[in-house]
Design a protein around this nucleic acid. Structure first.
Length: 417
DNA sequence: TCTGGGGTCCTAGGACCC
DNA sequence: TCTGGGGTCCTAGGACCC
């Protein structure tokens, strides 16, 4: 028996924890650069505000209905997430943190006769300790737990749903639209609907060979999971990433080479930090660059270039490689809206293949270690490579960001009495 | 004026090996 | 005229997830 627990409207709920006056009011959270809607409270959903809508398109709606908008505050959401996950560990040791706002919990081997009550208790505890409302869905497979969670959110007043018999499975599948099944995205649900598959139940009635042919083994796995055969195991220890990417849109398109060069250096350095955090080294580094894809007046240009590295997590090596790659793809007749750096071909740092002529690496390693340490204890990026420039020049637009209440002493919540 | 960011897995086809 | 059989590795593209 698995449970899927997730925070309802997570980012919006995080904002409400520190701003209780926002209960029952429409709240939305915006993406980087305050571009699009990435989270909505129920009240905002009721107003018809859709996920992914550009913020400027719903300006009137926001003003008319006193919708409160926040820039995204990942420092806050990340920390709130960790606290929430800790509570989950009070209920079972087997917790897979699946995303910032949800986790799969494994209750195999538990006495299941009171499992529903456990769900209610978990929900109450998270509400009390963290302040976030969560929904809990129990079922024998992860895919069904996702469905149970959805039902809990939509139909259960206590936020908990349990699917534990073949009859309940059938009923749950019949009330779930095909496009709401975990693992079936836009393309496949459009295709399936053309074949008269409307619900998750309809999907389970298709033949294995048809599914295999049209949706490969992943589709087959989804069918088995929906019928109660667990195929997707719990991952208790997150496997190391196989690729790491840092990319940003610029607030304004620009042709300024120095500006882009510094931004790309910053992205490369950020990739290095993430690499060292998971103790990996990279063998490839890709820089990509593109103009504004929404700009119909000017011609579109997008390009990328990949540089070979030799097992490095040194920010110095990465920045050097990134600058080299940028030089190759930059064309001066365009203005650029977005750039990024991707490192791949990752290997565990301890398996690093040494090179005979490799004299600099151990020095770099020590420098990076010290940099990381200083940045950790003294605040993000007090120390950086000169190539990264003054960073502030290309800073994100974050007009409505709340304080980082839980991770900065200077930004603690203030209570006036 | 204004449109995010970061990942994974599977398959087919090409290049290569014996 | 007639041209085997079995395998691996890599990459690009498409689908999916949050």
């Amino acid at each position: 028996m698995y449970a899927l627990v997730d925070g309802n409207n997570f980012y919006a709920s995080c904002e409400r924890v520190f701003n209780p006056g926002l209960q029952h009011k429409p709240v939305v959270v915006l993406s980087n650069n305050d571009g699009i809607i990435i989270a909505r409270s129920n009240e905002a959903k009721a107003l018809g505000i859709k996920m992914g809508t550009p913020a400027f398109k719903i300006k009137d709606l926001v003003n008319q209905n006193q919708v409160v908008a926040f820039s995204s505050n990942y420092a806050l959401y990340g920390d709130m997430s960790q606290r929430m996950m800790q509570i989950f560990h009070d209920f079972t040791p087997a917790v897979e943190v699946y995303s910032i706002d949800e986790a799969f919990l494994d209750f195999n081997g538990f006495d299941l006769s009171h499992i529903r009550a456990t769900g209610v208790k978990l929900r109450q505890k998270v509400r009390k300790y963290i302040g976030i409302p969560v929904s809990v869905g129990f079922a024998p497979t992860k895919t069904l737990a996702k469905i149970a969670n959805r039902i809990a959110k939509k139909h259960m007043s206590d936020g908990v749903a349990l699917i534990d018999t073949p009859e309940k499975i059938k009923k749950a599948l019949q009330m779930t639209a095909i496009e709401d099944v975990w693992g079936i995205g836009r393309q496949h649900s459009r295709f399936l609907q053309q074949h008269k598959v409307k619900t998750a139940w309809d999907f389970t009635q298709l033949s294995d060979s048809f599914i295999r042919k049209k949706m490969s083994v992943t589709g087959l796995r989804t069918k088995a999971e929906l019928l109660g055969t667990a195929c997707i195991p719990l991952e208790l220890i997150p496997p190391p990433r196989k690729a790491i990417r840092t990319a940003r849109s610029f607030v304004k398109s620009t042709a300024d080479y120095e500006f882009i060069n510094e931004a790309v250096a910053r992205f490369a350095a950020a990739c290095g930090e993430k690499l060292r955090q998971q103790q990996s080294a990279a063998n490839l580094l890709t820089v990509f660059l593109r103009t504004d894809k929404f700009d119909k007046k000017n011609s579109y240009y997008a390009n990328s270039f990949t540089v070979q590295l030799s097992n490095t997590s040194s920010g110095i090596d990465l920045v050097k490689a990134a600058k080299k790659a940028l030089k190759i793809i930059y064309k001066k007749d365009f203005t650029y809206k977005k750039a990024g750096v991707l490192v791949s071909g990752l290997v565990p740092e301890k398996n690093r293949q040494l090179s005979l002529f490799d004299t600099h690496y151990s020095k770099h390693r020590q420098v990076m270690k010290i940099m990381d340490q200083i940045n950790k204890t003294n605040g993000y990026h007090v120390l950086k490579l000169a190539a990264e420039g003054q960073a502030s020049a290309w800073h994100l637009k974050q007009k409505y960001r709340s304080k980082r209440y839980t991770t900065r002493w200077q930004e603690l919540i203030e209570i006036k009495v």
